[in-house]
Amino acid sequence: MTPTDAPGHDVTTTLDFLLQEVDGLRTRWVAPRRLRVDLPAETLPALLELLKGRAGYVHLSAISCVDWPDDGQFELVYHTWSYELNVLVMAHIRIPRDPGVYLSIYDLYRPAAFFERDIHEMFGLWFEGSPDMGKFILTEWEGPPPMRKEFDGEAWVMEQFGWQEYRPEWLTEIEAKGGGISKRPEQLRGDKGEDGTA
């Protein structure tokens, strides 16, 4: 594999050729340096191993998790970058929301430890084989995983903290002249059980 300056024709064909070795892939070039790969969850380790071993994909840029409650699925996106090909491969997999368990890729990529721990905290997914799934950011948090779609952060805040009404004199003056805030916050929130502590 020779280093290349720009993703020329040969790089794209190399990658496309290489990815034929894994079954069940759907690949799509979404931008000149962005290759999107959709694949079934069980083939992801094989794909990453292939990319890391044969195409120089040593850099795991991020693991993103997307919640799709309507489909009952979590989408995991593995963004990997090759310092030789200078192309980003985004591998999309979907896993069922319940029980929400997947394999850790820590043995392939060390940075996965941070991202998997983060996803575990924020979404409640469990990664088999990840070195440390202890709490890191939300050590004082006892509620549900906050990034799940069913967790309504605003309602939680309203219940926990209460609302302080803020009506300074200058606002009253403006309102007397017919100006001011056209839509009050409680109207925007649809009067969600909220009683203002003035």
Partner: peptide, 26 residues
Amino acid sequence: YYVVSNGGDKPWRVHVRGPSAMHAVQ
């Protein structure tokens, strides 16, 4: 930034990959 849109007026998901996350922990 990994940004997902579901066709709405708000982001469906935004994931921020802060560079410091790598060198500030492990």
